[in-house]
């Protein structure tokens, strides 16, 4: 697939756009996972100790 091929250009541009969107989503997922997973682990670990309070 030649990038200079006029009739294919719109498809290539759309594909590049999809890749860009995917990257943006991946960055978003990675960023929130980086902070969310440890925080979730901390909250669950703490809550398991809290449960003893009412046993």
């Amino acid at each position: 697939m030649s990038q200079n091929s006029g009739n294919l250009e719109p498809i290539d541009a759309a594909g590049a756009h999809d890749v860009q969107v995917d990257r943006a989503v991946l960055r978003l997922v990675f960023g929130w996972a980086l902070v969310g997973v440890p925080l979730g682990y901390g909250v669950i670990t703490t809550l398991s100790r809290v449960a003893q309070l009412f046993n």
Binding site: P38, L39, G42, V43, T45, T46
Partner: peptide
């Protein structure tokens, strides 16, 4: 929340 992670 930092302490919730750091402590365990």
């Amino acid at each position: 929340g930092g302490a919730l992670i750091a402590s365990p």
